[in-house]
Amino acid sequence: MNFLLEFYNYRILAEYIPQFYEGLCTTLKISFVALFGSLAIGTVFACLRLAPNPILWRLAASYVQAIRSTPLLVQIYIIYFALPEIPLLDRRLNELEGGILALALNAGAYMSEIIRAGIQSVARGQVEGAMSLGMTYIQRMRHVVLPQALARVVPPLLGQTAILIKDSSLVSFIGVSELFSAGVTVMTERLIPTEAFVTVALGYLVIYLVLLWASNWAQRRLAGP
């Protein structure tokens, strides 16, 4: 047992269980809110990207390209440090709101590409069938295309969710105390980097494995012909 204590001092770590637990909860909370935001943004931009109006689809395409060619950390800094007061709130975004907004905007661009691929995978004949029934663009999307596309995109969306959760570690840079910053706290207070960061890594790994399992399950259940 002494051998283990030298490499991984679980006794010191036990004092920090509340910090790690709170950090884990915050990470999950941030990711959960950002996930819903990104799905909404992704769906809207995927539909815009496929719209016949050139202004609309060019706008959506530039958004996706701008997000994809800049680092998330820069996006977080711009939203948190550089955004002025928000008129409706009468104040600037706090670190939690800024972090969530940046994560949602970032993941939304990637989600929109996945959803767009899903929409385009729906056979052309089905859209033409819906058109010949006199359905409008909105109706075709709502009743024919999106239900089929969503079933096909669930596994890659879960993969993107795993990336979103990992990326949420970057909001610790603007002072949100989540799972990663719990590790930083342990390192700075006790100077035990091994225990601090191996524990953090294990925490993220567990979340990832759960999502991996869910993705495989969804792939089996939703697999098309």
Binding site: A162, S169, A201, L209
Partner: peptide, 23 residues
């Protein structure tokens, strides 16, 4: 591959920069 894909890059960087020297 799963270990590296399952953890944030930030954590991997800290493991290599702070934890490996501690060994």
């Amino acid at each position: 591959i799963h270990c590296l894909r399952g953890t944030p890059f930030l954590v991997q960087l800290y493991l290599i920069y702070f934890v490996l020297p501690a060994t």
